[in-house]
Design a protein around this nucleic acid. Structure first.
Lengths: 164, 164
DNA sequence: CATAGCGATACATTTTTCCATATCAAATGG
DNA sequence: CCATTTGATATGGAAAAATGTATCGCTATG
């Protein structure tokens, strides 16, 4: 498939009901992936997409996860076997797949806030583990909230996304 | 558009790269909705889809999660503040969203085995926490394995879902 | 054996797609 | 200021492919 200039022109002017192969190629170029979604899953998928497209900076979550991992690793020196650090690492790892859910929501803000807090507490040597634990708990509950607030819904509709 | 019998025959035999309109119509008939997903959102969307299509014997994982929560709660009576129990609870909670990953894999067996083991150890009063901890570790590593063996890496090639 | 149902195929039609070329706008050079 | 180049978009015509209609062959069933 070549997707020539002429072809594009006709597509843009709506003068052509392209073939599937052409369509897919075009999607690729636009960094989109055509996916067939069962109607029953539509609302869920839409939710994910909505949250994502609102937010610009996806890297923030990844960055936060990395920060948390680093914090945990640093503290290991002092508390080699502390389960609290296990927990923190687990939570940080969990962040990655949940990325889409963080976009554009206040969750993002909360997350960076938590990271800030933990970083702060980790800095002071004899830092009270109680405060640190509270931070980790905050992270955990944020995580749980996101994962669970992922309820289903209803409303099927016709939704071929736009192009151009 | 009519989607005649002849056309369907050709499509099924792969002898035709349909036009977009035909494709959409076919999707409709199959109760599917074509959606263009930004690559960056693909993992999130796939997660939702996986979760949904698991639907059938999801109860097993859920059951395991509940069992684990119960075990943890019971042990609380004796060890009110043990962080190991925190960890177990966290892991149990984590199970839910990972449900789809358990489907049909040996992971399912491993999970029930772990639950069996922990239940056993929790039964005997002065049970050695070492063994119990080992069980929890097993659960954690199973979880991590699943979560990590999950990442796509790159390009889903021509991932239009199947039809027929 | 007749016939009804279903999928595959032939041939005709329609439409996309490709290649070449035209059109147009903005930029560039004398 | 006009001519020419350059780049990007539209269009015409030919080739290729999808779609439609009619038909054929197979299987089941009376």
């Amino acid at each position: 498939m070549k997707l020539t200039q002429a072809q594009l022109s006709r597509i843009e002017s709506g003068a052509s009901d392209v073939r599937l192969a052409t369509f897919v190629e075009l999607a690729r170029i636009l960094d989109l992936e055509p996916v067939l979604v069962p109607r029953s899953a539509l609302s869920g998928v839409n939710a994910v997409l909505r949250e994502l497209e609102a937010g610009q900076d996806a890297r923030t979550v990844r960055g936060a996860a990395n920060d948390l991992m680093r914090i945990a690793r640093d503290l290991r020196v002092r508390y080699p076997n502390d389960p609290l650090l296990d927990r923190l690492e687990t939570l940080a790892r969990d962040l990655h797949p949940l990325e889409p859910l963080f976009q554009s929501s206040p969750a993002q803000a909360e997350l960076t806030d938590i990271v800030e807090d933990l970083r702060e507490r980790a800095r002071e040597p004899g830092s009270d583990l109680g405060g640190f634990r509270r931070g980790v708990d905050r992270l955990a509950s944020l995580r749980n909230k996101l994962v669970h607030g992922q309820q289903t819904g209803e409303r099927p509709a016709y939704t071929l996304d736009d192009e151009d």
